[in-house]
Design a protein around this nucleic acid. Structure first.
Length: 803
RNA sequence: GCGGGCGUGGCGGAAUUGGCAGACGCGCUAGACUUAGGAUCUAGUGUCUACGACGUGGGAGUUCGAGUCUCUUCGCCCGCACCA
């Protein structure tokens, strides 16, 4: 027999699949549909990583299994190709990002094909292709038309040395990664998307999808909903009120001062009344200078300044209280001001202690002279007049009713999630389909003029004014207003990397459509993504952003379902052999190409599935790769042991049924490691038994096919089974054949296994007891002792307690 | 600080969900075949003071029975982070 040569048979079958378009997903087939989605890669210059292999092989296995189960499977791939690494590379080399991207996509595609993935390559997409980003722009226009895109000021990271805007990933601890200069916050007018308006819908939607619990939780935490009330505090000697948000209106009687964030507009509005306005200005400047890093790192020590000349009135007891400015209050959350309750909030307590502000106890139970008492779920209110003696929950309701009745406040919901800053001052991204007209303002480019394509530029560096390099191309920037025909300028910012990936799964459904991002018919047929797998690093923002866009498209009638993904899972990281994260600088990166070259793609796939718990991080182990290769070698040699006996041999029947069941179920639960282990156990049994029947081998290679498709298809062919393996059917098991007729059960005496007895699998307690009591070991252990209790768990154990 | 997760042999990990701890693989030991072995095959491999006892980070508890449940403690990982 020829020996197992992965290089030859893998190339052979990959060509056959490609020539036959074996894995092409059919629109509108009679079979039930199944849409498996994996996160499309960013085609970096480094090429494919074993992490990609772990991420993709999982749904690859399930896609192949689904096809054998009779489904019409859509399993597509594409490239998320806009982004900084390519642009930075272009800046360094002068090579156009288009050229770099095309080359990288070429490399990635050939690597993915070498692994033998059953992607439908006819549906491949590239987010940087104008035919693709035409529709990214189109969706933006819809958001804009519906009032969900707006301009506002924000701070961008500006490097004083390079004179460019940096992404968050490009600097650390306030210093530019490239030149080491100080990075400052520069104010700029940019685009935002109103994702906050969708906060409630995005939370609700989580109820109708099947996400891993930790993924769902991260979504909920990111949205950060909190229910409370807005309360107005009168500012003494003015007609104004200072509005605050609180989740604990019940503690209102304990509010002994107020704090505004340094960015609060009242500081400017009342600069004439604030006696120490210079001191305040100084504080504002100081806190603005603090980078985000410092604001967090130096958070231990509270700072702040009292506003002299301004006082607030506590609305429930008319007490005059001081107002402070401090940077522990953020402008971006709530109203940018708080009522401070030092008795029951740790931060307020620290602040009050430092500045000698009165601390009042309003909830019984703690010792507020030592620390804030915050564990107040079941607390009883004190020092609170009308709500004294109530429990926290009741007090919140009563006082809020009261505030609402008097017009002093109202119930409110707040979200941590901020609106989505939707901009980059970079070249390699989607241009915004809008122009700025001096007469008409911001005007949308008409749909018929889409896409607004990226012009060719000479240099890719952002300009030293913080604008994208597009700003320097006069003939592109200067245009006419679609509304009035007058002079106008194009928007020169580009969209962030998240844009193209926020809807890509819809384009796979109909990737060549020029009339729509996808046709209604095809959207209705393919519907929701059934199963989406990817990295934990994308389960907050990417997942949330794409859910937002999709929900918006649903609301305007463009897609058939509210939620884009019915199910979402995530794989664990593959670490280097040293247990550290793989990185170029550590030199512990494993290139899948090397593994394929030495052992073959089937070994790579088998090992990556066998490596460990799919959801957990796991170190790469080259030696273990050999174990997977050995397993496939043993499968190959199994061909010399095939007999012509029909069906399963008597001795292996139970194991066969059990293995079919185990593999079928484990793959669905992403327990790939135990599925492979079950197949290894089975092959060991074949060897122990000394032969394998044609039917046993057939079942075995079908079960292994999704994981190792080349070798199994080859053996299928060599052994002369009918047709192609990928056209056959997934095997089924019979439940009552998964258990032997006679089973061995342990006998415990006082908690220790003292004997094992063979009984019929469905034997009742009386007959089992008889067998147990006749056992010699049991007899010696219960001799001269009194039996206190006997427990029998059918099929599991017989337990005797003696004294 | 808050939220979540995890701790099992030399290593990666199993354990029908409260019922024989360590499946499967790696590594290791011994042997066979061999000019050779980083190939293959066979046997062994949790620990110890070994016919027995101990053993799932430590300590307690519930139970006939605990890796699994409860409490407590230690350690590690991930996410968010002055969120009012």
């Amino acid at each position: 027999m020829v020996s197992y040569n992965p290089a030859v048979i893998e190339a052979k079958w990959q060509k056959i699949w490609e020539d036959h378009q074996t894995f092409k997903a059919e629109d509108f087939s009679d079979k039930p549909k199944y849409y498996n989605l994996v996160e499309f890669p960013y085609p970096s210059g480094a090429g494919l990583h074993v992490g990609h292999v772990r991420a993709y092989t999982s749904l690859e296995v399930l896609s192949r299994k689904r096809r054998l189960q009779g489904y019409n499977v859509l399993f597509p791939i594409g490239f998320d190709a806009f982004g900084l690494p390519t642009e930075n590379y272009a800046i360094q080399t002068g090579e156009h990002p288009r050229v770099v991207t095309d080359r990288n996509i070429e490399i990635f595609s050939s690597q993915l094909k070498k692994i033998g993935y059953s992607f439908d390559w006819s549906r491949v997409i590239d987010t940087t292709n104008p035919e693709y980003y035409k529709w990214t722009q189109w969706i933006f226009l819809k958001l804009f038309e519906n009032g969900l895109a707006f301009r506002d000021k924000t701070y961008v990271n500006f490097c004083n040395g390079c004179r460019v805007v940096l992404a968050n990933e490009d600097f650390r601890e306030g210093k530019c990664d490239r030149c080491g200069s100080e990075v400052v916050q520069m104010q700029k007018d940019v685009w935002f998307l109103r994702i906050r308006e969708y906060a409630e819908k995005l939370l609700d939607g989580l109820n109708e999808v099947d996400y891993l619990p930790r993924i769902r939780l991260e979504q909920e935490n990111w949205i950060g909903k909190s229910v409370g009330a807005e309360v107005d505090f009168k500012i003494k000697d003015t007609d104004d009120v200072l509005r605050v948000f609180t989740t604990r209106p019940d503690t209102l009687y304990g509010a002994t001062f107020m704090v505004m964030s340094p960015e609060h507009p009242y500081l400017h509005k009342y600069h004439n009344q604030i006696e120490n306005i210079h001191e305040i200005h100084h504080y504002q400047i100081e806190s603005q200078k603090k980078t985000e890093f410092e604001r967090v790192q130096l958070a231990k020590e509270k700072t702040g300044v009292e506003l002299k000349g301004l006082k607030a009135i506590n609305p429930v007891n008319n007490q005059e209280i001081s107002i402070w400015v401090a940077d522990y209050v953020m402008m971006g959350y709530g109203t940018g001001a708080i009522m401070a309750v030092p008795g029951h909030d740790t931060r307020d307590w620290e602040f009050a202690t430092k500045f000698n502000i009165p601390i009042v106890e309003v909830i019984k139970g703690g010792d507020i002279t030592k620390e804030a008492y915050t564990d107040t779920n079941d607390g009883i209110l004190v020092n609170s007049e009308l709500i004294d003696g109530l429990r926290v929950k009741e007090a919140i309701e009563k006082i809020t009713d009261m505030l609402e009745a008097k017009g002093l406040g109202k119930r409110t919901v707040n979200y941590k999630m901020k609106d989505w800053a939707f901009n980059r001052q970079r070249y390699w991204g989607e241009p915004f389909p809008v122009v700025h007209c001096s007469d008409c303002g911001i005007v949308a480019v008409p749909e018929k003029d889409l896409p607004v394509t990226l012009p060719v530029v000479e240099r890719y560096e952002p300009t030293d004014t913080g604008e994208s390099p597009l700003a320097t191309i006069e003939e592109w920037v200067n245009t006419t207003c679609p509304k009035c025909g007058g002079k106008a300028k194009r928007e020169t910012d580009t969209m962030p990397q998240w844009a193209g990936s926020s809807w890509y799964f819809l384009r796979y459904i109909d990737n060549k459509n020029n009339e729509a991002f996808a046709s209604k018919e095809k959207l209705n047929y393919w519907g929701q993504v059934d199963w989406y797998n990817g990295g934990m690093e994308h389960v907050t923002r990417h997942l949330l952003y794409s859910r937002f866009w999709h929900r918006f498209l649903y609301d305007i009638g463009e897609v058939p379902t509210k939620e884009p993904y019915a199910k979402r899972t995530a794989q664990g990281l593959i670490l280097g052999g040293d247990g550290d994260k793989m990185s170029k600088s550590k030199g512990n990166v494993v290139n899948p190409n090397d593994i394929i070259e030495e052992y073959g793609a089937d070994t790579l796939r088998t090992y990556v599935m066998f490596i460990g718990d799919y959801e957990k991080p796991v170190p790469w182990n080259e030696n273990s790769v050999k174990g997977s290769k050995r397993f496939l070698d043993r499968l190959w040699k199994l061909q010399e042991m095939v007999t012509n006996q029909k069906g399963f041999s008597k001795e292996l029947e139970t194991t066969m049924h059990r293995t079919i069941k185990k593999v079928s179920q484990d793959l669905e639960e992403m327990k790939y490691n135990t599925a492979v282990a079950a197949l290894m156990t089975l092959i060991n049994e074949f060897y122990d038994y000394g032969s394998v029947t044609r039917d046993e081998l057939k079942v075995f290679i079908i079960l292994l096919n999704p994981i190792a498709p080349h070798i199994t298809e080859e053996i299928w062919n060599l052994q002369g089974y009918e047709g192609m393996l990928n056209q056959t059917q997934w095997p089924t098991w019979e439940e009552d054949k998964t258990v032997e007729d006679i089973i061995e059960i342990p006998v415990q005496i006082n908690g220790k296994v003292r004997a094992k007895v063979n009984v019929a699998k469905d034997a009742d307690e009386i007959s089992v007891k008889k067998t147990v009591m006749n056992d010699e070991n049991v007899k010696t252990f219960i001799e001269n002792k009194k039996i206190i209790k006997e427990i029998f768990v059918p099929g599991k154990i017989y337990n005797i307690v003696v004294k």
